[in-house]
Design a protein around this nucleic acid. Sequence first.
DNA 1: AGCACGCCGACT
DNA 2: GTCGGCGTGCTC
Length: 803
Amino acid sequence: MIAEVIVDVSAYPIDRPFDYVVPEEMRSVIECGARVKVPFGPRKVVGYVTRLKQETDLANSKMKAIDELLDLEPVLSTELLAIAKIVARETLSYEIDALQVMLPAAMRAKYEKFITIVEPDAIIDEDLRNLMQGRTRIPLKQVTSSSLLKMIKNYVAQGIITVDNSVSQQTKVKKVRMIHIEDSSTLASLLDTIPSNAKKQIQLIQWMKDHAGKSMEASKVIEASGVQQAVLKTVIEKGAATESHEETYRDPGVSQLQEAQIPYELTEEQQLALDKVNAASTTNKAETFLLHGITGSGKTEVYLQAISHVLKQGKEAIVLVPEISLTPQMTARFQARFGGLVAVMHSGLSAGEKYDEWRKIHRKEVKVVVGARSAIFAPFENVGIIILDEEHESTYKQEDTPRYHARDVAIWRSESFHCPVVLGSATPSLESYARASKGVYTLLQLSKRAKNQQLPAVSVVDMREELKEGNRSMFSRQLADAMHIRLEKNEQIVLFLNKRGFSSFVLCRDCGTVVECPNCDISLTYHRANESLKCHYCGHEEKVPLVCPQCESEHIRFFGTGTQKAEEEIAKLFPTARVLRMDVDTTRQKGAHERILRQFSEGKADILLGTQMIAKGLDFPNITLVGVLAADTTLHLADFRAAEKTFQLMTQVSGRAGRHELAGEVFIQTYSPEHYAIELSKSQHYEPFYQLEMTARKQYGYPPFFYITLIQFSHEDLMKVVAFADKGTTFLKGSLSPETIVIGPAAAAISRVNNRYRYQCLIKYKKEPKLIDTLQQLIKMYRTDWIKEGLLMSVDVDPSTIY
DNA sequence: AGCACGCCGACT
DNA sequence: GTCGGCGTGCTC
């Protein structure tokens, strides 16, 4: 028997299956999708079995045998193996990368070199003896001094020391010590043998008699009986109980926010949508739905009931949410409805916790997974429905290899399982809405709010007028007045600002110099907390200059507005208001999101001030006012999705107000009130925005009218990057169809990051059968020659941003 | 990607 | 003379 193995080496010539002989003893147990340890060249690596066969063209003499079978139960189903092939092909990534992305990071192999002393007596050196401390095998990386390293090399040559490579897994299954208490008669007779001065032992056995025959965790026994660890140990040795180590799951802690468990009564629209989705799941139809529902229209309830429906058929459900730690309310709702059947997967979990959640899915102990992007690869084998909430979110596109889009993977998987996909959004991506309009997806509309509340009244405030009237503050008079009223009424306010930090940049008013990052072509951001300037691209940090570095003028000051600056201004204007700030700086700690949101939900603050992350999912009854401090920030980005992003953001943020009994009001402050993305977010009407934006996309040749692929080049040397970008672009132009448009090369919007110059080239096409092939050739040239000259090149099919 | 093999300069 | 620099080529 021969196994085709994809080995854990990300390199161009290695990106193909290698044949290995399956040793006799593995033949009855080995399966596709299992991990194996194999010899590869002079070393050992982990690989994935992708096929088992009897024949090979390869000379028998070349073939080696599998070293070790790592999984008796395969970690990847044949379905996921097939999906990995599709992902690798469509995103032009290595198959091994596509396979690895499907598994929790904790399962990835760890490679470490070790040195082993074969002849301890031959080692005379004092330093080496000290380092070894009597051990015969230590990791090579513990040897730090170069003189010792040299010496070891010598010993290796003489055969006194050997170097070996260990391939281990980072995976650790958490074990707990369980105590199994004997029956009461055993305990009673044991009690007679305990000397009367051993009071603690007697106390423990007495306690055990009340719990005779039971099994419980050692820590619980110690806590409940009130004795020390040592006493327990002695008593066990005397035969009062037995102990064992059992597997357990780490407890990531369930969100505190709870919701009603009973399904809500559906509105007519919701029921209609649900019926259509249920019909598809009942008849095993791979149909993609676009559930377009305005904010507060109760999309989640439709998801929940559609999931109930598939669970009743004995199938599983995958639910994707943009980034789950942002919406603890969402998870809480799923857990309240489906209880222990839910696994949660998001970036806030530790590697061990993720691994445990993965194992619950793999063992089919849960039926529903709620998670961020990578949860699309949940190892279920009988999926009945896949849901992507907020389908327009760009976080569904992975920004590094494999650059897959969860929406695409969802549709591929739905075809394997013959199950429906539900894409839900109040502001669908133009691509999805266009597909729904063409009938590729089935459009489901929810046009009314579920509890029949009014949409909030949205006002657009022209900040140019404010400036003219002499108001230089970042709060317009209208917004400030509205805030005063809410504060008096003890209602809550959400303020949205799309920028963290204190202010966007530092500018000299005499010579116009903006302080820029020395490594990147971007201005630095002022951070109040440590009086520093930070680069958000490379992490460069420096002290705030007191005088202009160019002209030495003292008239150097901060411009623009960040969340920290806003917080300060609020303190000045509304001294009594209690403010919570939520941005990447205040939420870096684990659980900080939940803590801030809980504080706000418990009414411990009047104002929640935050960036992007507060736009989604907040659902608190007492929020009646939403203010967008600067709507323009996303509008003028050099990206074709800028208008769409702005409209989506405005609509999402506005949707936070007045979701319950109290009516909501929204103020959008902007310097471009006439822009259609802002103008139309006032009414929250998606359709007119869609029509206008489609006209613009058509005119400029962007998605959904054209597909796009972005090639990025970067090099430390400006001349070299230009030369390579030119070479690449010329090649593409010559190889692709004449109808395909190749734009560039041009300098990227941020033309230098981390001291590397960046150029890019954009391919636009409606139909390009040669695309994948041509890109493969380009990548081959890069991998074989260009990379050696220090060039970095990336290919992004269907990029989320070209900026 | 790693790792071994192999062919030329500066040191004990 | 040897140590070690990194160019070249291979991995079932």
